[in-house]
Each structure stands twice: as structure tokens, then as C-alpha cells.
């Protein structure tokens, strides 16, 4: 591609794209090594070419580009061999064809980020069906693949205004299926990272659709067993919402209290962390609405026999801003916690 005269460049580019539609079996790592190397080199050239040349992306190339990408990335993901796969403990199954797949993703990203990229042309090919297939790939066990998918979907969401509502709706469906049906989806954290940037960019006043997403999806997400894998991203989304619209605070706090873990202390520590993040941004006028039910729960945590839970709850008093809120409202807060504090100071084993 580098040496080709400009007149022949587009034809050559087209041929290389078609060449890269050939798929190889990486499970048999000795099979067809020569062919694999030819494709790897061709993909490298394509990445280089789109990344460095201007005026390359002419309209007729768009369908060829999308076809090559689709043929390579859209596939049925292998079933997780270990049904008891614990994302926190076990090593994920990495994608065997990664040597090629990575370059296809890299090429796709360069294509989307090229100054010559035209969404008006690309939207014929990057449509709702394409996006649905892309979202399915977020269930891949390979974190490297999910990282690329996250960046790609973030760019697609940004550049294709007509797809935004559809993407939000499909993410909704993935989360709801995850919460209420399968409790198994590998890309929840990545999707929440994208949603964090979307929430951050919401216009005010918030649309009802967005508030419903908080109430119907983000809060119930706290009830899932594998919360620890995506809690940081989930808490970030919740806090983004409250910074956008503080009137949602009461609903969020009551939702967390409703889903408060009863038997998983690790989750309880996460919930306390999230509560502190919320209190860090809370308006005093909102604090007074939830102080009593909230500090009744904090008091229960202080009395927890699990010392990490008790410690994390007591740690609220190390936060200057929370301290000032409690001081301003000690007539309401003190009665809910003092009895427990006194009892714990005498009886707690640790």
C-alpha cells in the first residue's frame, strides 16, 4: 500500500480488505502459519494506511470496510467452559484469534477516528443491526476485546446521533436480562463506563427516559451477586446522575437501603463506600430527607460483628463534609446512632 501509486491505491486497498475476509483457525496453532502471517501483514498495512493517509476513505470503500470488520468480529462466542466460572477468581478464556482480531479492532477504531470519516455515508452500514451484533460481543470473556469494544461503541454513540436512543434501549435490555434472567454478562462494567460518559453529558432537565433508567436499571443492578466486578462503574454512574439532578437523591438512597445486602459483608462494604460518595455530593436540603433511615442502617453496620463493615461505617465520621451535615442535624442523627455507639464501645469483640 505504501508503494502503490495513488491511482491504484483504492483498488489495492479494496483487494486487501477482501483478502482479510478470509478466516483462520487459531485453535490449531500450527495450521496455515503462512496464510496467518500474510493476513496479519495485510491488516497491519490497512491500519497504517487509514491512520496516516488523508483522502483514502472514499465512499465505495465503506461497504468493503464494514464487511471485512463484520466478517471478522461478529461470531458466536464460545460457551464458557466452566459453568461455575467466577469472574473474580478464574482467569478468563482469551480469544485464540486475537493476533488477527486485535488488528481488525485497531483498524475499526482508526477508521472511526479518521478525520475523513463521514457518518452520513457510514450510517448505511453501521445501523441498528450492526450495533446489536456489536453489543452481543461485550459478553466476550476476553478483557482486551471488551476494552476495544468499549472505545468503539463510545465513538459510535458520539458520531451517530440517530443510533443513540437505540443504543441506550439495547443497553437497557442487556442489563435487565442480566439482572432478572441470566446474572451472567461479562461486559457490564464496560457498558457502565460508556453510560457514565453519556450521563455526564445529559442535558437538563433530565428526560423521563433517563430517570427511569436510574430507577429501573441502575438501582436494581446493586442486587446482583457479581456486583464487585462493576460496582465502581455503577457507583460512578449513580453519582453522575445526582450531580445532574439532586432531586433524585432520596430515591437513590431509599433504593440502596431497599437493596441493602443482608448476608454478604463484602457487598455491605461496597454499599457503604457508595453511600459516602453520594454524601460527598449531597445537598443539605436532600440530606435532611434521608438522614433518619440512612443512619438507622449506618447504626446497624456499626454494630456489625464483621469488623470491616463496622469500621467502614465508623469511617463516615472521618469525612469533614459528612461531619458538618451530621453536626447541623444532630437532633435527628444522634438518637439513631448513639445507643449503638455506646453499646458497641462496650460489647464489640474488636
Amino acid at each position: 500500500l505504501k508503494e502503490a501509486p495513488v491511482s491504484e491505491l483504492h483498488d489495492l486497498l479494496c483487494k486487501k480488505l477482501q483478502q482479510c475476509c478470509i478466516l483462520f483457525d487459531f485453535l490449531d496453532c500450527v495450521a496455515d502459519l503462512k496464510g496467518k502471517e500474510i493476513k496479519r501483514a495485510a491488516l497491519n498495512e490497512l491500519v497504517e494506511c487509514v491512520a496516516t493517509n488523508r483522502g483514502i476513505l472514499i465512499e465505495p470503500l465503506y461497504p468493503e470496510i464494514i464487511k471485512m470488520i463484520s466478517v471478522n468480529i461478529f461470531r458466536t462466542l464460545p460457551p464458557s467452559e466452566n459453568p461455575e466460572f467466577d469472574p473474580e477468581e478464574d482467569e478468563p478464556n482469551l480469544e485464540p484469534s486475537w493476533p488477527h482480531l486485535q488488528l481488525v479492532y485497531e483498524f475499526f477504531l482508526r477508521f472511526l477516528e479518521s478525520p475523513d470519516f463521514q457518518p452520513t455515508v457510514a450510517k448505511r452500514y453501521i445501523d441498528q443491526k450492526f450495533v446489536l451484533l456489536l453489543l452481543d460481543l461485550f459478553d466476550s470473556e476476553d478483557p482486551r476485546e471488551r476494552e476495544y469494544l468499549k472505545t468503539i461503541l463510545h465513538r459510535v454513540y458520539g458520531k451517530f446521533l440517530g443510533l443513540r436512543a437505540y443504543i441506550r434501549k439495547q443497553c437497557n435490555n442487556i442489563f435487565l436480562r442480566f439482572i432478572y434472567e441470566t446474572e451472567h454478562f461479562n461486559g457490564v462494567a464496560e457498558l457502565l463506563e460508556i453510560l457514565g460518559s453519556i450521563i455526564n453529558g445529559f442535558a437538563l432537565p433530565l428526560k423521563t427516559e433517563h430517570k427511569q433508567f436510574l430507577v429501573r436499571v441502575l438501582i436494581p443492578l446493586h442486587s446482583v451477586k457479581s456486583l464487585s466486578i462493576f460496582h465502581a462503574q455503577l457507583a460512578y454512574c449513580v453519582v453522575q446522575f445526582l450531580e445532574k439532578d439532586a432531586t433524585l437523591t432520596e430515591h437513590v438512597i431509599r433504593g440502596l437501603l431497599k437493596y441493602w445486602p443482608k448476608t454478604c459483608t463484602q457487598k455491605e462494604v461496597m454499599f457503604l463506600g457508595e453511600i459516602e460518595e453520594i454524601l460527598d455530593v449531597i445537598e443539605p436540603s436532600q440530606f435532611v430527607k434521608i438522614q433518619e433511615p440512612l443512619f438507622r442502617q449506618v447504626a446497624r453496620c456499626i454494630a456489625s460483628p464483621h469488623f470491616q463493615v463496622a469500621e467502614r461505617a465508623l469511617y463516615f465520621w472521618n469525612n469533614e463534609y459528612i461531619l458538618s451535615l451530621v453536626e447541623d442535624n444532630c437532633h435527628a442523627v444522634l438518637p439513631t446512632v448513639f445507643g449503638t455507639l455506646y453499646h458497641v464501645s462496650k460489647e464489640h469483640w474488636n
Partner: peptide, 30 residues
């Protein structure tokens, strides 16, 4: 004397995974 209220903490820095915000656009299809 009126106790000076402690100011709210400055906005905590975005976590490492935060991605650039995408601003909602009124042209988006509902």
C-alpha cells in the same frame, strides 16, 4: 458567632476509567 459551615468538598477527580462525556443533542431521535 454564626458557625462557618464547612464548604462541600471540591468535586472528586473522575476515576481512572471515566471516559470523555458525550453531550446530549436535541437532534437525537426520541
Amino acid at each position: 458567632p454564626q458557625k462557618k459551615k464547612k464548604p462541600k468538598l471540591p468535586k472528586s477527580p473522575a476515576p481512572h476509567f471515566a471516559m470523555p462525556p458525550i453531550h446530549e443533542d436535541h437532534l437525537e431521535k426520541i
